[in-house]
Amino acid sequence: MVSYIVYSIMILILPLLLMGFLQKIKAKLQNRIGAPLLQPFFNVLKLWNKTQILSEDASFLFRFGILLNFCIATYLILSVPWLNFSPMIMGLDLFLLVYLLAAARFFNILSALDTGSPFGAFSGSREAALSFLVEPSLVLCLLAPGLLINSNVMSEMFAFKTAVNSDNPAVWIFASLGLFITALVELSRMPVDDPNTHLELTMVHEAMIIEASGRNLALCEYSYALKLTLFFGLSVQCFLHAVSAFLPSNEWLTLFFSVIGMFFLAAVLAMLETVLVKLKWTKCPDFIAYALTMGMFACIVALRGRT
């Protein structure tokens, strides 16, 4: 019961807090003071009460797509074990997870193209190309732990119940790395897309929501934060499974490590975004290929342990 309450509090607070933390660290690294830690909360609240401007060419799909996207993100955050507690909705398996993410993307693209804006359409087509590159690696990174545990249900895969075999940590480490790279692409972060610019040559995610304003934009921002939490959480959980032999079995300590891990990943991301330059669009596949390679390594090691 207590864990449920803690889990709910985490769901409510952590996504936007992570965003704020990310921006704060990034500002510090760039010698700026930066917005306060709670700025994303203020942003969402403010946007929620603003007037929304809709395109005259938009159909119902524009706002419905954004809403459905938000609902899918909420569903995922409730059913994916991104913390060490068992999620509220049980029984989500990895193919459903992948296809739900695909569904969110589908409606994202449709609502970006719905207004007939060339910007949204441009980024929509790029998003489709990125998704086709990144989906195989996401599946492989999640399949490898599944092959270890003999189950493809997410809550069983991430339940700290692997017998510690000599190869297992390698599987989890590769999966964790692969998921982190995948997260960078899925969330359109730095080497692939720059979240800070609104320059039409670079953007993917920002241009998709270019027509959104007011409540729609608030929903977009919030679902983005939810997705960020989800991916970072999964990556951290994979890492914690890798080192589970050295972890104390206390649930609360593991929770502490999970949260710390997510903040650590946010800090790493902030550092990467300060140091790296954005890749040229045609060079992005070279970068994304590393995620697939990590997934392949994870699967190979998982299969190697079986013989």
């Binding site: 449709l110 193209l113 207004t115 929509g124 489709a128 998704s131 086709f132 989906e135």
Partner: peptide
Amino acid sequence: GALSLATVSKTISIVFSG
């Protein structure tokens, strides 16, 4: 699956949107 998602989203948005 990912490619067919691109196909369908292209078709629907070009035919019906804008």
